[in-house]
Amino acid sequence: MTEYLLLQALNGLIIGLIYALMALGLTLIFSVLKIVNFAHGELYMLGAYFSYYLAKLFGFPPVLAVLSSMIIVFFIGVVIEVLFLRPVYTGAVERKDEYAILITFGLSIFLQNLALFVFGPWTRRSPSFMSGTTSVYSLSISNDRLFVSALAVVFMIATLVIIGRTFMGKGLRAVSQDREAAAIAGINPFKMNLLAFGAGSALAAAGGALIGPIFLIFPTMGAMPVIKSFVIIVLGGMGSIKGCIIASLILGEAESLGSVLFPDLTRGLAYKNAIGLLFLVVVLLVKPTGLFGEKHVRMK
């Protein structure tokens, strides 16, 4: 049993890392633009499809396919920002929060149906990064999962370094804390919006492309992960990057261990997705701003 729980914990860690990648993108977008991107799951889906087709049709090696797909989705994100979200900041829209919710929600439905039309309804799977399984004692875990979590860690560290160490990162953080003050310091907030939305989209794409060989590719694949990401960023305290990563790992573990330690064993899986939400409710009751949240953040 101990061995089993240990393996479950490892499994939860891997899932948590993948959640973190996607939630990180959402957090980045939220903290800079103060917009909850409801179309995030579809960017994740697009990332998965692009990486799949690059590998299948053009023979890209899997890792290169992931990176290329991130670049493509980065530019899709940039286009979305310019076309649909820019009006929020130029004062062209009266009710900004509502506009942002409706436009990203609409985009989500549009992209889902577009994918259904363009890519077809059939479930796909991108080629393995590393085939086979690795044995841990008597239990085995697929190499894909190990490889993907390693890559997820690499992407995450890269993101943290860019945000923490570079001038660009300081600019992003400055805009996220105070748009006007950042502008006074010579930072172009529009450029930062563009960059944040593009980078956030690319991170979502990375999540989707990495998950491709593990959890399969289909037009609606983003629906569940995006809900998980919302749970994570609220749990972590809206906009906190540290909170986002920690909350992802907690959610991964809570789901993985929660569903096997659930009192009624035959129902554990049925409540798996609910466990995260339950956890969220409890945390918010004790700490309304989330684990690492400061005060309530809103669009100015």
Binding site: L139, F215, T266, R267, G268, L269
Partner: peptide
């Protein structure tokens, strides 16, 4: 016979499958 139910959207069956295996 042992029977468990799960949501249609579930993506990871490994926890329960491992339990069955052991």
């Amino acid at each position: 016979m042992t029977s468990i139910t799960a949501e249609r959207t579930i993506q990871d069956f490994t926890p329960q499958l491992l339990r069955f295996k052991l």
